[in-house]
Every structure is written in structure tokens, then in C-alpha cells.
Design a protein around this nucleic acid. Structure first.
Lengths: 150, 150
DNA sequence: ATAATTTTGATGTAAATGCATCAAAAATTC
DNA sequence: GAATTTTTGATGCATTTACATCAAAATTAT
């Protein structure tokens, strides 16, 4: 069994840190780009689901979103019937930043996949998707306080 | 071009957060397992190279190592001729913890790859290795202060 | 050899992260 | 329908992370 964990960890840390450096010019601090992009692509999403989408802790999501709201990039709107949830929407000011983040992420992907054939790229995408689905179940269980046994 | 970045980010965050939860029982706080494992496997490594191995910032490595030293899990030894560097070694107390970390990481990998055939697993490993090498060059350049253009 | 640059380690400071906990609304159970 | 549990949001606190900067040793250039 190949040690895919370490490879994945290295790639993730490397690209995340590059992104963070580059997005400082748009006043985005560490990690903020992640939340902003997902909110842009899922208008009306609630914070709880945003956490599951990115796979980060609830409290982390909430603070990140609070900051985006303070910066005028995101809006929280109450629900008409469910008084517990808040829907998130990106503001018009977020749009140009969103475009830049996507451009940068696309470039990073190109760098990562530069010497892979289109077939290999597709293959990698599919295999990663399957691995991610496998992992998501465990992650949500641990978030709910369950313990893994092995 | 498939969006491998997001898949990789999700998997990395999910498994890292699970690991962090589980290793608290060994008094390892967030991220420490990463450093400890690499030091165990590379006796005598210096902090600078440890950063490149894990792909984290130099100052982050230094504080993480300082803490492991304070916990008695790692030792810093000066070099006989080069007075600038410090070699890192895991102490005997680190060994049982190392074994547990490896066991947990192996389990996580099994979960992630559970429904992939051995061929698919190998393929994923190879493709990720290539992507990681591609990314490493960019990461080291950005760490040295260079700007990417795209 | 001397000067300039790079490497390696370290720390102050600001910020994100994540656990524990609370609170209120909603959903479920009895 | 009342009581219990779950869901969703929020905050205090301890910790890691990372940038900027410094310092000293080593390397390279002049």
C-alpha cells in the first residue's frame, strides 16, 4: 500500500501556503480564500454545511465567515422560517477576488499536473474523488465524537 | 483538467484533524506527529531540511521541534565541525509513540484506499508522487521570496 | 583576505485553528 | 404535547502557524 497520505499532505500544505502568500494582495489572510470560493459557488449555503464541504471544524468556519462579513465580502441573511440558520451570500465586491482565486488555483493545478497525460490527469481526479469520499465518512464520525478502532 | 486541488485539500484536512484528535492521548498537540515521525525516520536531520521534507515554514518547524525537545521526545545535538546546524534525534521515549502514529496513519490510508484495487492504489501513489515533485519546486521558490507569474 | 551573500537558527507579534462550552431553535421520542 | 436530543451558531481560551526580523556561522565573490 503506497503512502499516499504523506504525498497528499505535502501537496496540500505546499499549495495552500503558496495561495496564502499570493492572496495577501487582496487582503485575504490565511485560509480565507477557501471559504470565499465555496460561498461564491454555493449561494445561500449555511455555515454548518460549509464546514462539511471544506472539512473544517464548525467554530473555525464561523470565525472565518465573520471576518469575511466584516470585510464586506460576504453577507449573512436569516431564513424566513427556520430561525436558527443563516444563509451566506458573496457580495458583488467578492466577485473579482473570486475570479483571481480561481485563476491562481487553476495555475497551481496546472503546475501539479504538468507532465501528466490527459488520461493520467483524469485518472488521478477519479481516484482522489473516491479516496475523499471514503475519508469523509470517517471525518464526520470523528467530528461527532466517535472513536475509530483499528 | 480535474480539480485535484480541492480533493487533495479535503483529504489532507480530514485525515490531519482525525490524527490530531487521536494523538492527544499521547500528549501530542496539533501537527506534532508530523515532525516526530520524520525525525524518527531521519536521525540526525537538521531543522532546515525537516521543513523541506514536510513542506512547512522554517519558524514553524523550529517551534514544533522546541516543544518536542521540551517533552523529552527529541534531542538536539550540535555538529562537530559546523557550528551553525543542530542535528535532531528521537529519544527512546519517542519509539512507542512513533509506532502508534505509524499504525494510525496506516489505518487512515487503508480507509482512504479501501475500495481501490491494488493496481489503482499503486497508480494513485505514483501519480501523486509526480504531482508532489512538480509542486515542490514552486513551493521552494515561493519560500525563497520569488513570485509566480500566470 | 575582505566583503557581500546565503544558510540556519531563533524570537516577537499577529492571526487562524480547534476544543470546551454555552444558548436557542428545531426535531425526535415518549 | 411535554420532555429529551440534535442541530446550528457563537465565544473564551490555549495553541499552532507564519511573517518580519535579527544574529551568527558558513559560503561565495571580489
Amino acid at each position: 500500500m503506497p503512502d499516499v497520505l504523506r504525498e497528499i499532505g505535502m501537496i496540500a500544505r505546499a499549495l495552500d501556503s503558496i495561495s496564502n502568500v499570493e492572496f495577501k494582495q487582496y487582503q485575504l489572510t490565511k485560509g480565507q480564500y477557501l471559504y470565499l470560493v465555496r460561498i461564491c459557488e454555493h449561494p445561500g449555503i449555511i455555515q454548518e454545511d460549509l464546514g462539511k464541504l471544506i472539512m473544517v471544524e464548525r467554530s473555525t468556519v464561523i470565525r472565518a465567515v465573520q471576518k469575511l462579513v466584516a470585510q464586506g465580502l460576504v453577507e449573512k441573511r436569516p431564513d424566513a422560517t427556520n430561525h436558527k440558520i443563516r444563509h451566506l451570500f458573496a457580495t458583488p465586491q467578492a466577485q473579482p477576488i473570486y475570479a483571481r482565486v480561481i485563476a491562481e488555483n487553476t495555475h497551481s493545478t496546472q503546475v501539479a499536473l504538468q507532465d501528466l497525460t490527459p488520461t493520467e490527469q483524469a485518472q488521478l481526479g477519479h481516484l482522489l474523488q473516491r479516496a475523499r469520499r471514503n475519508v469523509a465518512a470517517d471525518w464526520e464520525a470523528v467530528q461527532r465524537g466517535q472513536t475509530r478502532h483499528y
